[in-house]
């Protein structure tokens, strides 16, 4: 059973069609890049998978189920904006995540925080923006989830932190979980991707294994993207 399946998925905000007939199937064990320019529908798709939005048409299934309590148990979601209480420190957050999610692995989170020398006693609001983002990513990746939905995980951090994030994704990888990374910073992520999905104006323009795309086009995914989305 696919971990994520969309059939004819549509979402409108008033008269604006954010998603327009999206068909996607994502199997377990894949790292997928959801790639598209700003306003292409990436975040809308991810929010639909999380049950934060309701489809205007079509359907979306997570592990065969409509988004709901059961799907939330297996999805670990990194929103594009911070959603954590700023008065908490990393230690409190670990308690918070541990209470909410049965699959939260506290020792994994502690290990990652230590590797980045983030003080677990410092409140989020006193951390730098980059470190706040890292803390949030660590909470998300420390879950043993079935599907990780990472909405722009590398947007606001420096290149060294990008490497850390990508390495965290690779090292937490397990063959039964899938990861969907939405981003427009393709050059940075393409080496970790199994599959790429190009989305534009609410429609899927291209879906392909990353290596197959490179082989067929003789170009990097980044170059193909620049061609498809030339302004």
């Amino acid at each position: 059973m696919p971990i994520l399946e969309c059939k004819g998925l549509c979402k409108s905000y008033g008269s604006v069609r954010a998603l327009d007939g999206v068909d996607i199937t994502i199997e377990s064990g894949r790292i997928v890049g959801l790639l598209g320019p700003n306003g292409s529908g990436k975040t809308t798709l991810i929010k639909l998978a999380n049950g934060l939005l309701v489809p205007s048409g079509g359907r979306i299934l997570v592990n065969g189920l409509a988004p709901g309590v059961e799907s939330k148990k297996i999805i670990s979601y990194l929103p594009e904006r911070s959603c954590l209480p700023e008065w908490m420190n990393a230690e409190q957050l670990m308690g918070f995540y541990g209470d909410f999610y049965a699959d939260f692995d506290r020792s994994a989170a502690e290990g990652m925080l230590a590797r980045l020398s983030i003080d677990v006693k410092t409140r989020l609001k006193h951390l730098s923006k980059g470190n706040r983002e890292k803390v949030q990513l660590i909470m998300v990746m420390a879950r043993k989830a079935g599907l990780y939905l990472l909405d722009e995980p590398i947007g606001g951090v420096d290149p060294a932190a990008r490497d850390f994030i990508l390495n965290t994704i690779i090292s937490n990888y397990n063959p039964t979980a899938s990861v969907i990374i939405s981003t427009h910073l393709i050059a940075d992520v393409e080496r970790v991707l199994d599959d790429v999905i190009f989305i534009n104006q609410g429609k899927i323009v291209l879906a392909s294994p990353a290596d197959q795309l490179r082989e067929q086009q003789g170009k990097s995914v980044d170059e193909v993207f620049r061609e498809v989305f030339r302004c």
Partner: peptide, 8 residues
């Protein structure tokens, strides 16, 4: 680098 599949 760009063009070739990463596995190759």
């Amino acid at each position: 680098n760009g063009g070739a599949p990463i596995y190759t």
